[in-house]
Amino acid sequence: MSERAAPFYCPYCGDEDLRPGLQGPGTWECAACNRGFRLAFLGLLARGLTGGADR
């Protein structure tokens, strides 16, 4: 994950006080709720951007 891909808020509490984690690339720490999480790009979906009724 590149340095440009940064979360804007914590997925657990919604706070914006985030810092890069020490556990490796893509890890983040929230100072508000004291949780750590990892962001990763999994890849492109096979169905692409066709959309559909399943959304």
Score class of each variant (00 low, 15 high):
47 R>D: 13
4 R>G: 09
21 G>F: 04
29 E>Y: 15
14 G>I: 06
54 D>E: 15
50 T>H: 06
15 D>R: 04
16 E>L: 00
52 G>V: 02
13 C>L: 01
26 G>I: 02
35 R>S: 12
25 P>I: 01
7 P>S: 05
24 G>K: 10
35 R>V: 13
49 L>G: 15
26 G>P: 11
47 R>Q: 12
1 M>T: 12
1 M>C: 06
13 C>M: 03
2 S>L: 02
13 C>K: 07
28 W>F: 15
4 R>C: 02
29 E>A: 13
11 P>Q: 04
48 G>Y: 10
13 C>I: 07
23 Q>S: 14
15 D>A: 15
29 E>S: 12
42 L>A: 12
43 G>Y: 07
47 R>T: 07
2 S>T: 12
48 G>I: 09
55 R>S: 13
28 W>I: 03
23 Q>P: 00
13 C>V: 02
47 R>P: 04
50 T>I: 02
12 Y>P: 00
40 A>Y: 05
10 C>Y: 10
43 G>A: 06
22 L>G: 14
21 G>K: 08
10 C>P: 14
16 E>F: 03
55 R>K: 09
35 R>K: 14
41 F>H: 13
16 E>Y: 05
9 Y>T: 08
7 P>T: 10
44 L>I: 05
7 P>F: 00
49 L>P: 03
39 L>S: 10
29 E>G: 06
44 L>V: 09
30 C>H: 11
38 R>E: 09
6 A>G: 06
44 L>M: 08
10 C>F: 08
44 L>S: 11
9 Y>Q: 10
24 G>W: 00
39 L>W: 00
30 C>L: 03
28 W>R: 04
7 P>Y: 01
14 G>R: 01
50 T>P: 02
25 P>M: 04
24 G>D: 11
32 A>P: 04
40 A>S: 15
37 F>T: 12
54 D>W: 10
6 A>H: 10
10 C>H: 12
10 C>T: 09
21 G>W: 03
16 E>I: 05
23 Q>G: 07
3 E>V: 03
25 P>G: 03
46 A>V: 07
40 A>F: 04
7 P>A: 05
7 P>V: 02
52 G>T: 02
25 P>K: 10
11 P>W: 02
41 F>T: 11
39 L>H: 01
48 G>L: 06
45 L>C: 07
31 A>W: 05
51 G>L: 03
14 G>F: 09
36 G>V: 11
46 A>E: 15
31 A>Y: 06
47 R>Y: 08
35 R>M: 08
50 T>C: 01
30 C>S: 11
29 E>I: 05
9 Y>S: 14
2 S>M: 02
18 L>R: 03
49 L>C: 01
8 F>P: 01
10 C>K: 05
42 L>G: 12
3 E>S: 12
19 R>G: 04
51 G>Q: 05
35 R>D: 03
33 C>H: 14
39 L>P: 04
6 A>P: 00
18 L>W: 04
54 D>P: 04
26 G>Y: 01
15 D>H: 15
21 G>Y: 06
51 G>T: 01
18 L>I: 04
5 A>S: 12
51 G>W: 03
21 G>C: 06
44 L>Q: 10
49 L>E: 15
28 W>C: 08
28 W>P: 14
45 L>T: 14
